[in-house]
Design a protein around this nucleic acid. Structure first.
Lengths: 207, 207
DNA sequence: GTCTATAGAGCGATAGAC
DNA sequence: GTCTATCGCTCTATAGAC
């Protein structure tokens, strides 16, 4: 590693990520970012050309990761209960490292759906997923009740993600430190799978 | 009603609400709003002074309503199961009329917490709520399992709200019309209470 | 009450010195 | 590779005619 400390390009990317996450694409300015990175404003254009290119480059990896990890786990050929625990565990940990991402992703997509869906290559998923077949198969065996796969996914994701999106509400309800919030979220690693399983087992003999 | 059609102030408010919801405070411009309202840009300043005042005035009623309705229902002295059904039913209907509000509120608060919390008077709630006492009392009687009140609230809200926040994801999963989305959400009026009750009844004799 | 015209500031982006 | 200086544009907001 010859260049020791002042790798400007990396400093800009780190600063841009922080500022974009906080203020969104529209709210962030080159001035904000260059001050955060402690470099000259003109350097942003030198390295990345335009604001949009900087934005896309910074979130190119991480943005897609958050959406793809869902399907990577959902589509694994593992028992349903294991899958639910794995999903809650892995996704909670991922978001804990990037707690502002859920709101950021949803709001940026809502404000510019074409751009993001096109660039990040999020594609139309088939309705006939492995998870859908798994849920149908288990229901046919009578080990769980019937449930639509998308309903299942949205329930699971909502349970995992919502505390991060409603963090300001939680602040007003006494969960007002990062430590308390983390404890709250980690407790959900137990609650969420139990909730999903309790629902799925309703009306079956294993109930 | 003397002034028939051209009530500019109301046209501006309606246009501002639409544009702000779509683009956020930072992304929205007076040009966007005035074109949407089909009035001159200078009229926005004439009626509302500044962009921030326009924003606050437009969302003064509805913004707070969305947060307060939660507690209005949660704090009612009605049986727990009735409360859950009521919460899911009323909140789903409210959001269906304003499907962009959940993302809008969360992202605007994340980007400007002091301003919004101060202006809309969202205050620090006590941890000793009616709901908390109700949950503790039922658990003591053995009719439900023990659960922290905030965990209960976040689970319920996540289940209700997440489909609206993840609407773009749902579009890619085949739920790509307003009609299909509405049907999907209405189905949750049944699923969500059953899920909550299934969890609460786990380990009790009524299970 | 609504318009045109424009002020004044901040924005993203570029040119050119070093 | 990094800086200063500045361009051209768009933004919010105001002044003043009607």
């Amino acid at each position: 590693m010859p260049k020791v400390n002042s790798d400007s390009e990396e400093k800009i990317k780190a600063a841009a990520k922080k500022i974009f996450l906080q203020k969104g694409f529209d709210g962030a300015t080159f001035k904000n970012i260059s001050e955060e990175a402690k470099v000259n404003t003109a350097l942003l254009n030198y390295y990345f050309g335009t604001k949009e290119k900087l934005f896309l480059e910074v979130f190119d990896e991480s943005f897609f990761l958050f959406i793809r990890l869902i399907y990577q786990i959902m589509e694994q050929d593992i028992p349903l209960e294991v899958k639910i625990y794995s999903m809650v565990d892995k996704y909670t940990d991922l978001i804990l490292e990037n707690p502002m991402m859920p709101i950021f992703i949803t709001s940026e997509i809502q404000r510019n759906p074409e751009k993001l869906i096109k660039h990040f290559g999020i594609f139309k998923q088939p309705t006939d997923t492995f998870l859908a077949r798994q849920l149908a198969s288990e229901a046919a065996k009578g080990t769980i009740r019937e449930i639509d796969a998308l309903q299942f996914e949205m329930a699971l994701l909502g349970l995992i993600l919502f505390p991060f999106m409603g963090r300001p509400i939680m602040n007003l309800r006494g969960v007002d430190t990062d430590l308390a919030f983390k404890a709250f979220v980690l407790e959900r690693k137990k609650i969420i799978p139990e909730m999903m399983m309790a629902y799925l087992k309703t009306g079956t003999k294993q109930q």
